[in-house]
Nucleic acid binder design. Structure first.
Length: 261
DNA sequence: CTAGATGTTAAGGT
DNA sequence: CACCTTAACATCTA
């Protein structure tokens, strides 16, 4: 689930459930989710503090405390957040449980343990250390253009490379390319300015619509290819057969007659 | 039982 | 050096 639009939803969820209230308990239920921070250090940074702001960059969620520490969350392929009041209802795959003085709890869930939890002094330091590119919804067109044309390689792997542009994963990369009518393996250096311009606008369009529709695929337009990620399905545009290939060792769905650039 | 699944990263190959 | 693919992580589902 968690690509940029999903993490944007999680940011809002964190905001409404967990801001401006004192953390009364921190339980680490599985230390494997912690990256570069010990359970005791995490507790020291969060206990008796409160979160005062949230921020998203790409697929990372940052929650700043009223002290130095910033909590950083990455959800991998199967992570989420769940707020609840009755601890008997503690959900499965709860790896970290934060309790607040208002009696509510926030569980950091991760079924497959692929994401991670960090503590950093500052978001910008963290972004630098992890060499993340600009956020896909904030990057300006000029920067995007130069990122795409500067290095060679297939366009899809480039869109998904978090060090170039942060936030796009396998699903949204397919959608953006479908709407831009560009083949996932197209050599990005070969793309014309007008193709990259279209790609830029479609990237913004797809991500923005996805956020507006609460990152819920059930609410996405039928004309999107996400709803047709099955080999036997038909292209919503030309009614031709959907193709399936491997690109960057991930499954790509696309329409070979519509995406021929 | 096997393969694949929305992510990232290290390692090896071309 | 630049780019590509694969394996690994842990777990569930088709």
């Amino acid at each position: 689930m968690p690509e940029l639009p999903d993490v944007e939803m999680l940011k809002r969820y964190f905001y409404v459930t967990s801001l401006h209230r004192r953390v009364s308990d921190v339980r680490v239920r599985d230390v494997r989710i912690l990256k570069g921070v010990s359970a005791s250090s995490l507790k020291r940074c969060l206990l008796e503090k409160s979160f005062e702001s949230t921020h998203r960059h790409g697929k990372y969620l940052f929650a700043k405390t009223n002290r130095e520490a910033v909590l950083v969350l990455h959800f991998g392929m199967s992570g989420s957040l769940r707020s609840f009041k009755d601890t008997k209802r503690d959900p499965k795959y709860d790896r970290i449980l934060l309790s607040f003085e208002d009696g509510f709890h926030l569980a950091i869930l991760s079924q497959r343990l692929l994401g991670g939890v960090w503590i950093t002094d500052s978001k910008d330091t963290f972004l630098r250390e992890h060499a993340l590119g600009p956020d896909a919804l904030s990057v300006d067109q000029k920067t995007f253009q130069s990122i795409i044309t500067k290095t060679k390689g297939g366009i899809k792997s480039k869109l998904m490379n978090q060090k170039l542009i942060a936030g796009i994963g396998n699903i949204y990369a397919d959608e953006i390319l479908f709407q831009s009518r560009i083949h996932p393996l197209a050599e990005s250096k070969e793309l014309k300015d007008k193709d990259i311009s279209r790609l830029y606008h479609k990237m913004n369009h797809v991500l923005q619509i996805a956020v507006d529709r609460h990152a819920d695929p059930a609410q996405f337009p039928f004309s999107w290819i996400v709803s047709h990620r099955i080999e036997t399905d038909k292209c919503p545009r030309c009614r031709g057969r959907i193709s399936k290939i491997k690109a960057a060792s991930r499954t790509s769905y696309f329409c070979s007659s519509c995406q021929n650039i």
